[in-house]
Amino acid sequence: MQKVTSASHELVELFPRGRSDNFLARSGWRRLGEYRFLIRQLVRINFNTEFKRSFIGLSWLLILPLLSVAIWILLNGAGIVDPGATAVPYPAYVLLSTSIWGFFADIYKNSSNLVTNYGRMLIMTPFPYGVLLAEQVVVHLIRFSIPFGLNLIVLLFFGVEFTWWALLFPLSLIPLLLLGLAIGLIVALLRIVAVDLSKLADEGIRLLMFLTPIVYTPKIELGWLSELVKINPLTYLVSFSRDLLTEGTFYAPVTYLAVSGFSLVFFALAVRIYAKSQPRILERLIAA
């Protein structure tokens, strides 16, 4: 570190290179602890701002997934979609699959809007980006667990019998969370400097849902579409978690582990790229 002595006091470089860059890598988690209080405040704001002026408030967290399930049941009843053979009743299958998909898609959506939503606040009152990342994950987990509790009841109602393996279900979702965060963090940067690419990414994620066995099963025969479903990594992340919960079986465990490993590496890389680029992106935000 460069030092200059002036009179009796020693001056040091105030913002040395790399200190803010590697927030998570270096002093990271300890500093995150210092900001625990801010994370709690931001989580509270996140929930309250959305529901404070709504009469039915948090009930929305239960109503929205039920509505989407109802639509799929109607489509199924009308014979528009032929899902292929499912081990559990179709509505239960869709309910669970859409909520697992939502677990991925929502964290993508939230983290990909990190700079757009919080950038101006960070320019006015700078705090470490890790705080926002932690807040997003906490909010996401709460938002997922509430309707998911309801889902479990519906699954029981449809006659799904859980095994002890079902207890591992939450852990099996971690790779999905990491992958969603990783793609989201990269797209968060692109939203400021490459708007077209970020729009493509949004559409890509939407398209991916149809290439993932959510409303149909992995066994479905759809010609070339089946090939795309097979090479889609999300097929394995979603199907593994779903089968673990409903049947207590492992869907393509080796591929699942490989995709999980990839997600972890991609996440570490994305955090690094994000950390390095955030200051450069924030200055573009105000100038744009």
């Binding site: 913002f15 290179r17 790399g18 803010s20 860059d21 940067l189 692109l190 400021i192 400097v193 490459a194 708007v195 790229i273 390095k276 680029s277 200051p279 450069r280 992106i281 200055e283 573009r284 100038a287 744009a288």
Partner: peptide, 26 residues
């Protein structure tokens, strides 16, 4: 330094992300 042009501003920002330019020039 800043860019006066919005499109160039975005383009340089993208270059910074891709090249991983450090926060301060050493």
């Amino acid at each position: 330094k800043f860019s006066r042009d919005i499109k160039y501003n975005m383009y340089y920002g993208l270059l910074d992300v891709v090249s991983g330019r450090k926060a301060a020039n050493s």
